[in-house]
Computed example of a mutant assay.
Amino acid sequence: MNKQKLKIIAMIPARYEASRFPGKLMQDLKGKTVITRTYEAAIHTKLFDEVYVVTDSDIIFNEITAQGGKAIMSKKEHQCGSDRIAEAVENLDVDIVVNVQGDEPFIAKEDLERVLNVFYQEDAQNIDLASLMVKITDEEEVNNPNVVKVITNQNDYALYFSRSRIPYPREENMNVPYYRHIGIYAFRKQAILDFYQLPMQVLEASEKIECLRYLEYGKNIKMVETNNRGVGIDTPEDIIKARKLWNT
Rank of each mutant, 00 (worst) to 15 (best):
Y157N: 02
A18S: 06
E17L: 12
C211R: 03
F119P: 11
E40F: 12
L47N: 06
E204A: 09
S74V: 12
A88Y: 11
M223H: 07
L212Y: 02
E110H: 15
T152M: 15
P22R: 06
D123R: 08
K244Y: 13
L116K: 02
N146R: 15
R163Q: 03
I182S: 01
C211N: 14
S131Y: 13
D138N: 15
N99G: 03
L112W: 04
Q67T: 05
L47C: 09
N220C: 00
F187Y: 15
P199W: 14
E87Q: 04
I221C: 07
V118A: 00
G81Y: 07
L193K: 14
P236L: 02
C80Y: 15
A242G: 05
K46S: 07
R20H: 14
R165M: 07
L25K: 08
Y168D: 10
E77W: 12
K76T: 07
R114P: 05
E113F: 06
L212I: 04
P236M: 08
E140P: 02
C211H: 14
N62G: 06
V54C: 14
H44G: 02
I60P: 00
F48V: 01
L212V: 00
A86E: 01
F21R: 05
K7T: 09
F21M: 01
R20V: 01
I221G: 00
S57Q: 01
M1P: 00
N99A: 14
Q190V: 07
I9Q: 05
P236A: 01
P199I: 04
L92V: 03
N247F: 12
A42I: 03
R163K: 10
Q125H: 12
I85G: 03
P167Y: 10
N2F: 12
I59G: 00
L193W: 11
N155K: 12
C211P: 06
G218N: 08
D128C: 10
V150M: 01
